[in-house]
Design a protein around this nucleic acid. Structure first.
Length: 191
DNA sequence: AGCCGGATCCGCT
DNA sequence: GCGGATCCGGCTT
């Protein structure tokens, strides 16, 4: 499910990003998920229908965006960790003035949201009809080679090797630099 | 009512 | 490579 989003485009307010890195969070059974302890005011949109944007406020100064991927009540979601800006580059630069290189414009979940102009107001929006749109490649488009490994920034059991649910496009310079690539670079797969 | 740590980023060393 | 910024959510008292 989650790796199917690699290579997909997200259009946000004049900027388009091609997703290069995502992380899966699996409902209430996943100790690393915000939904682990059931619905709260913050996580209620995770329990909504697939194709909904879940945006949360992080570390007092950033926002991060997820796509809800499961039917209502299940609360699985995919965190958009990084992407390559493929359209609206100048706008993205203006939204991310601290980026020294275009590679960094949407490298990291907070940066990706900034580049796309995503704010907390977009929490709960429908990705088919709202200001932020998701465009998934055709099923018959060429496969994307990807790697997978443990999730970034998740501490406790959810961050262990038992949950290797971070997926990225192999060899992409735009994948977020934190925690480096896991040992031995993770497993190579293809879809 | 208060505490603690976080699905981060940036600048400095 | 490391620490500071900055503040909310969720759990404890």
């Amino acid at each position: 499910m989650a790796p199917a989003l690699l290579g997909a485009w997200v259009h946000g307010r004049g900027v388009t990003v091609r997703l290069t890195e995502v992380e899966a969070y699996r409902g209430q059974t996943d100790p690393g998920s915000h939904a682990f302890r059931g619905p709260t005011r913050r996580t209620r949109v995770m329990f909504g229908h697939p194709g909904t944007l879940y945006v949360y406020f992080s570390y007092g100064m950033h926002v991060c965006a997820n796509i809800v991927t499961s039917p209502s009540g299940e609360a699985s979601a995919v965190l958009l960790r990084a992407g390559e800006v493929v359209d609206g580059r100048e706008l993205a630069r203006s939204r991310r003035p601290t980026s020294k290189s275009d590679i960094d414009l949407a490298r990291g979940p907070g940066r990706l949201c900034a580049a796309l102009g995503i704010t907390l107001d977009d929490d709960g929006d429908d990705l088919r009809s709202g200001p932020i749109r998701l465009e998934v490649p055709d099923a018959d488009s060429p496969p994307v080679a990807y790697a997978q490994g443990p999730r970034t920034g998740v501490s406790g059991p959810g961050g262990s090797e038992e949950y290797p649910w971070r997926f990225w496009i192999a060899g992409e310079p735009t994948v977020s630099p934190y925690r480096k690539s896991p040992p031995r670079g993770g497993d190579e797969r293809r879809r």
